[in-house]
Design a protein around this nucleic acid. Structure first.
Length: 592
RNA sequence: GCCGGUGUAGCUCAGUGGUUAGAGCGAACGACUCAUAAUCGUUAGGUCACUGGUUCGAUCCCAGUCACCGGCACCA
């Protein structure tokens, strides 16, 4: 029985395009993992969608004088375009602005209320008189009561580091329009995290979590150590999922974005099931078995800024709802810096996905973002490094290996040659291939993507060494049988590498698959489809049929006689000149 | 302020309580020429941030110092 695997990916705010940090942090690792799981033959469901609610969307809409729906319609399609360009293979990438999501969120809210995990309380909110609405602390600034710095943020002073509440500020004002801010009491629903803490703690401690990344575990333990307290899950906003209670006080309030966004993993699974015409299919990933265990392993791919939401709050909600599968792992990534500096959208110091997705081969971008991925610590995108690694590793080591083996074979045999007796050197490479396959498999199972990619690359290097020693291009003139044997061993290694690289480099692995004379699909790609938004307007989703790759994961069994195509290079070598061009482009658009 | 992380060869990073601390890239030299001037080999050399401690012995354990970074829950 194959395993069921849920690949849940962070929901991006639909208020701007992706930058490479988003891709490296969540979407690409999730895709690599999902592709691997599908190749293994596991039932894999990869979902996410655009987060349509929340203050950033509202602000963006106001700034541009358009509706929140317009903001979503502007940016959601750019996400889909990036995913298609880079081959991010969602089973469903939807959005939170759907009838289904509203229904599921409402259900979750009511169920938690019914189960006694929600309570009402009043809090003091920062209120903008000019805008007529409450503001998040982030949108309030004023003079620091501690040091007198005039532009202290609502929650903390950037000058002296003093922590405070917005009410403590002298002359608090809105960062949106500079108008004075007052403070009003407002009633909200709270998620009773204090009440959910004991079962949450029991869940965390129920198994040895050392398979979680150290940072993820540490963050979670710190939160638990400090003790959990209730968290407001409604807001004074006009855009979002309505609060489903019969109470005029909540008529002008909405469910708060973090509460509804995490529900997206669940609602998107349900939407997916309905789309494929099997309305109960989502249960295979979500509904606990009679013994209470999870029916699937669910992996949440997120950035480190999202850890508490996925290891504390979302599990608490799932526990409160009852009988739903809790996360198995939360492979949170650190951040990707850009040329040594933290990316900043306000300064426009960012490398936007739409700027590069058409200029470079998707596999080159994918290679660099995984090989240099922020798995255990912040890492850095540098154009010089990008060019160097693509040229020396992807092109020179792997692409060239495939190319030279295919070229010699095609020219001299035209098909996979029939091997003769194996020598020690042959057996060594075959054994190394076997070992690498096992190591890569284990590393991918543990979501250690960077290490897995490095292992595969090391085998490509070993194969290059083997070729240099065996020199099949000379043997074809002196010893046809030996040449055939060497090329056969090399071809099988290349064929295995094709599979090992497939989750990482799906475009080139698919091409190589065909060059090797196969006809099937090992790396299916996603596609955009159209459906309807709640207001009746068309809305786009990303989906795909990935069944073709199921179960293909394995060591090569390439058979003699299979025709080999004349190869052309798998990867484009990059011109050094792009380093200065890209740096100039980057610096030209930066704001100070 | 509180909590936490990081500091290893020019660059990006592995790693371990124990004889001469590793890889890739870059650099130098050599080999080869099937392959996108790709590949293969050899070499370079770093007081493993600093100080002190535990230990027969520490880069790895402990304490302190310095530097950089992150979190501190209504930003998700």
């Amino acid at each position: 029985m194959p395993d069921a695997i849920l690949v849940a990916v962070a929901w991006p705010y639909a208020n701007g395009p992706f930058h490479v940090g988003h891709i490296a942090g969540a979407y690409l690792p999730a895709d690599v993992f999902a592709r691997y799981q599908r190749l293994r033959g596991n039932r894999t469901l990869m979902v996410s969608g655009s987060d349509c609610h929340g203050t950033p969307i509202t602000i963006a809409a106001e700034r541009e004088g358009i509706s929140p729906q317009d903001v979503i319609r502007r940016y959601h399609p750019t996400f889909l375009k990036t995913f298609q360009a880079l081959g991010i293979s969602f089973d469903l990438f939807t959005q939170t602005y759907t009838d289904n999501h509203y229904r599921v969120t409402t259900d979750m809210f009511l169920r938690l209320l019914e189960n006694g995990y929600l309570y009402k309380d009043t809090m003091v909110g920062s209120y903008s008189e000019t805008l007529g609405r409450f503001l998040p602390d982030r949108f309030v600034e004023g003079t620091c009561p501690n040091c007198g710095y005039p532009r202290a943020r609502g929650d903390q002073c950037d000058s002296c580091g003093h922590l405070h509440d917005p009410q403590d500020l002298i002359a608090p004002r809105s960062v949106l329009d500079g108008a004075p801010v007052t403070f009003r009491e407002t009633e909200h629903f709270f998620l009773d995290l204090a009440k959910l803490e004991p079962p949450l703690r029991a869940w965390i401690e129920s198994v040895d979590r050392s398979y979680w990344r150290a940072n993820t575990l540490l963050f979670t333990q710190n939160w638990l150590r400090e003790g959990l307290r209730g968290r407001a899950i409604t807001r004074d906003l006009e855009w979002g999922v309505p609060v489903p209670v019969d109470d005029p006080t909540f008529k002008d309030k909405r469910i708060y974005v973090w509460f509804d966004a995490v529900i997206g993993y669940f609602s998107a699974s349900i939407e997916w099931a309905e789309r494929i015409g099997a309305p109960d299919a989502w249960k295979e990933w979500w509904v606990c078995l009679p013994d209470g265990s999870a029916p699937a392993r669910s992996y949440y791919f997120i950035g480190k800024d999202n850890i508490p939401f996925h290891t504390i709050i979302w599990p608490a909600m799932l526990i409160g709802y009852g009988n739903l599968a809790l996360p198995y792992d939360v492979p949170a990534n650190e951040f990707l810096n850009l040329e040594g500096d933290k990316m900043s959208t306000s300064r426009n110091w960012a490398l936007w996905a739409p700027e590069i997705e058409d200029r470079y081969q998707p596999d080159a971008i994918r290679y660099y973002l995984i090989a240099n991925g922020p798995e255990t610590r912040d890492s850095n995108w540098s154009w010089a490094d990008f060019v160097q690694r693509v040229n020396s590793e992807l092109v020179a080591t792997w692409g060239n290996l495939a190319n030279r083996v295919l070229s010699v074979t095609h020219r001299n045999f035209g098909v996979v040659p029939q091997p003769g007796a194996l020598t020690d050197a042959d057996r060594q490479l075959i054994a190394a291939t076997q070992q690498t396959f096992e190591r890569v498999t284990a590393l991918l199972d543990g979501v250690k993507l960077r290490a897995a990619l490095n292992e595969a690359m090391a085998l490509a290097q070993a194969a290059n060494q083997y070729l240099s020693e065996q020199e099949p291009w000379k043997l074809v003139k002196s010893d046809q049988e030996r040449a055939a044997t060497v090329l056969f061993v090399a071809l099988r290694t290349v064929d295995t590498l094709k599979m090992l690289f497939c989750p990482f480099l799906p475009f080139s692995s698919q091409r190589l698959h065909e060059l090797l004379g196969y006809t099937g699909t090992i790396a299916p790609q996603p596609q955009v489809e159209e459906t309807q938004a709640p207001d009746g307007s068309p809305r786009l989703i990303l989906t795909g049929d990935y069944a073709a790759s199921a179960g293909a994961w394995g060591i090569s069994v390439l058979a003699p006689g299979q025709p080999i195509q004349a190869p052309t290079p798998l990867f484009q070598k990059l011109d050094e000149a792009i380093v200065t061009e890209e740096l100039a482009r980057l610096h030209a658009k930066v704001r100070s």
